[in-house]
Amino acid sequence: MISSLDELNAEARAALDACLERVGHGVEAGFREEVLDDLRVYFTDHLEPGATPADVTALAATVGEVAESDEPSHTRFAGVPIDLTPPTAERVAHTWWNPRDERIFVPRVFGLGWAVNIGAVAVKLGLIEPDAEDEPFESTPVTALRRGLVVPALLSVAVVAHYALRGPGLPDRLPNQADLAGRVGSWTSKPVAAVTDIAVAVVPTAWAAVTVGRGGTGARAAGSLATATGAAAVAAGLTLWRAAALDGRSRPWFGPALAGLLWLPSGAVLLALARAGRAAEQRRDLGGAR
């Protein structure tokens, strides 16, 4: 403990000032001075006179993380979380795969409502440890990411092949939406249906392929693969339903099945990537023993 920040040497003081400035930028102006004063007291309590810049940075990292984790930043609308920040692949990965967090339902990456924390589900099912990776997907090898790309790619090929091979034999209008009972609620033209399904499958898959192909790794690559897999699976499910629903029968399982198609294949891909990351960490630490 020190009695004043002036006891720090010049390098440590400079590191501290840089940290405080960084934190200050993220705090609302009305509270900034109050927060910074609290932080100065905290650093005074926790730093020793001989503290190095590395000690300051290490302490600052802990403080920042604690502050972030204390209260979620999500705005709520009638008790439901809402986030209108533009989504990124990293945020998708961190939201859908956070095995250290026990909550299964977490605020969505974008929009109103909740998403499934597949990492928490995997931990509860005993498929992986909460701390299997130091940082999710940071150790996942590029080969595993490329293998993960096979799933959305195959689904996309299946959708394209369906419209290429079976398309000519399908009627001019195809089912577009289902009502709550699973009956066809509205119809659309065949070209619109085909372009929609193919675009929903192929565009995210192409984006994931570019991300992984350009050497993207970590949460960014994993998030793009999970998004592509979910989108391609939903597109494949929608394609099959459009063909099957032509018989006019009610299919009440359609809605839940579509939700399952979004989460199950994406979850399987994220789990495989996380397990590959765990295996890589074990090879790093245990060497030839694994």
């Binding site: 993380e65 909550r103 130091d134 630490d285």
Partner: peptide
């Protein structure tokens, strides 16, 4: 304390350089 509190905390401590983690047989 529950696991849901401990694991995120240990991760923050590791990020801050206060603890390290290693796989062991």
């Amino acid at each position: 304390i529950t696991a849901g509190t401990v694991y995120p905390l240990v991760a923050r401590l590791a990020k801050g350089g206060l603890v390290t983690s290693t796989w062991q047989e």
